[in-house]
Amino acid sequence: EETYEVDGEEQLKKVEKMLRDRNLDVEVEIHNGKFVIRAK
């Protein structure tokens, strides 16, 4: 499992696309105004 923490939606979209391109399962949560992306 990998976890990424990003600020802002633009970064979120980039990271999310990169992970989905690797066929990973992606979950996004918001913690303290930051996006936390978990990939399995």
Rank of each mutant, 00 (worst) to 15 (best):
I30A: 09
Q11P: 03
V28L: 03
K17Y: 00
L12E: 01
D25I: 13
K17T: 03
V36A: 01
L19D: 03
A39D: 03
E9F: 12
E10G: 03
L19F: 08
N23I: 01
E10T: 05
A39W: 08
D25F: 13
I30R: 10
N23F: 11
E10F: 03
K14V: 12
E2C: 15
R20C: 14
L19K: 00
E29V: 12
D21I: 03
E2A: 06
D7C: 15
V26C: 15
M18Q: 08
E10L: 06
V15T: 04
I37F: 00
V28Y: 07
D21W: 03
V26Y: 15
E2L: 12
F35H: 14
D21Q: 05
K14F: 11
T3A: 06
K13A: 11
E27T: 14
G8R: 05
L12V: 05
H31Q: 09
D7T: 10
F35L: 15
K13S: 07
V6P: 02
I37R: 00
G8M: 09
D7K: 05
K14H: 09
D25M: 12
F35I: 15
E1M: 12
E10I: 07
F35N: 14
E5I: 14
Q11A: 12
G8P: 02
K13I: 09
G8K: 05
A39Y: 06
E2W: 14
K40N: 08
T3P: 02
A39R: 00
A39G: 09
V6Y: 03
D21F: 04
Y4L: 03
M18T: 04
G8C: 15
K14I: 14
V36G: 05
I30T: 08
R38S: 12
H31T: 08
Q11E: 14
V36Q: 06
E9H: 09
R22V: 03
L24T: 02
G33V: 00
V6H: 02
E9N: 06
L24V: 08
D7H: 10
D21N: 05
M18E: 07
I37Y: 00
L12K: 07
K13T: 05
T3E: 10
D7G: 04
Q11N: 10
L19E: 04
E27L: 11
V15F: 09
K17F: 00
E27F: 13
N32Y: 00
N23G: 15
G33K: 00
V28A: 01
V28Q: 01
D25N: 11
E5H: 11
E27Q: 11
L24Y: 11
L12P: 00
G33E: 01
V15P: 01
V6T: 04
I30K: 07
E2S: 05
Y4W: 13
R38C: 14
E27N: 06
K40M: 09
G33Y: 00
R22L: 10
A39M: 10
L19T: 01
V26F: 15
K17P: 01
G33R: 00
E29S: 12
L12T: 02
I37E: 13
D7P: 06
K34Y: 09
R22P: 01
M18L: 08
L12W: 09
K14L: 13
K40S: 12
E16M: 15
V26H: 04
Y4I: 05
T3M: 12
I37V: 14
L19R: 00
E16S: 07
K13M: 08
E29F: 12
G33N: 06
M18K: 05
F35W: 10
F35K: 14
V36P: 14
E5M: 10
E5F: 12
G33M: 00
I30M: 11
R20N: 05
Q11K: 05
K34N: 08
L19C: 13
V26W: 15
D21E: 12
V15L: 14
F35V: 15
I30P: 03
L19V: 02
K13H: 10
K17D: 05
E2M: 12
D21K: 03
H31L: 13
A39N: 01
I30L: 08
E10R: 03
K14M: 13
E29R: 10
Q11H: 04
R38E: 10
T3H: 10
R20P: 02
L24Q: 04
Q11M: 13
A39F: 09
K17M: 06
E27V: 14
Y4R: 02
E29Q: 08
L24C: 15
E16F: 11
L12C: 15
V28D: 01
E27M: 11
L24A: 04
I30V: 10
G33C: 14
K17I: 07
K14Q: 11
Y4H: 03
F35S: 14
V6R: 03
D25P: 02
V28N: 01
M18N: 03
D7V: 11
E2R: 08
T3C: 15
R38H: 13
N23A: 06
K40F: 08
K34R: 13
K34G: 14
E1C: 15
K14S: 10
G8F: 10
D21M: 08
I37Q: 06
R20V: 04
E16A: 07
V6D: 02
G33H: 07
T3R: 11
R38K: 15
R22Q: 07
V15N: 02
R38Y: 04
E9S: 05
L24N: 02
D25R: 11
F35E: 14
E27I: 14
R22Y: 08
E9A: 07
R20L: 09
E2H: 11
E1K: 09
E9W: 15
E9P: 10
E16Y: 11
L12M: 13
H31D: 06
E9T: 07
E1R: 06
R38Q: 08
L24G: 01
E16P: 01
E10M: 06
N32K: 05
R22A: 07
V26M: 10
T3Q: 10
D21H: 04
V6G: 05
I30F: 13
L12A: 14
N32V: 00
V28H: 01
V28C: 15
V28W: 09
V26T: 05
Y4V: 03
L12Q: 02
K14P: 01
L19N: 00
H31Y: 09
V36F: 04
K40D: 02
E1H: 11
H31S: 08
R20S: 05
E5S: 06
V28T: 02
T3F: 13
D25G: 08
D7M: 12
R20W: 04
E16L: 15
L19H: 01
K13F: 03
E29L: 10
Q11V: 09
L19A: 01
L12D: 03
G8H: 07
L12H: 03
E16V: 15
E10A: 08
N23K: 06
I37S: 06
R22G: 04
N23S: 07
E9I: 14
V15A: 02
E2N: 05
K17R: 10
V36H: 09
A39T: 12
E29H: 10
D25A: 10
V36T: 04
A39K: 01
K13V: 08
D7F: 13
E29N: 07
N32L: 01
D21T: 03
E29Y: 12
N23Q: 07
N23P: 01
I37W: 00
K14E: 11
V15R: 01
N32F: 02
K34W: 06
G8W: 13
G8D: 15
E2F: 12
E16K: 11
V26L: 08
G8N: 15
E5K: 05
E5A: 05
V28I: 13
L19W: 00
F35D: 14
F35R: 14
D21A: 09
L24P: 02
V26D: 01
L24R: 03
K34E: 10
Y4T: 01
R38A: 09
R22N: 05
L24D: 01
M18A: 08
L12I: 04
E27D: 07
E10Q: 08
E9R: 09
I37G: 09
E29K: 08
E1N: 10
K40G: 05
D21L: 06
E29I: 13
V36S: 00
T3N: 08
A39P: 02
V6M: 05
T3I: 14
F35Y: 11
V15E: 01
K17E: 08
D25L: 13
I30E: 11
V28K: 00
H31E: 08
N23R: 07
A39Q: 01
V28E: 00
E29A: 10
D25W: 13
E2P: 04
R22S: 04
K13L: 08
I37K: 05
E5P: 03
H31G: 05
E5L: 12
E2K: 07
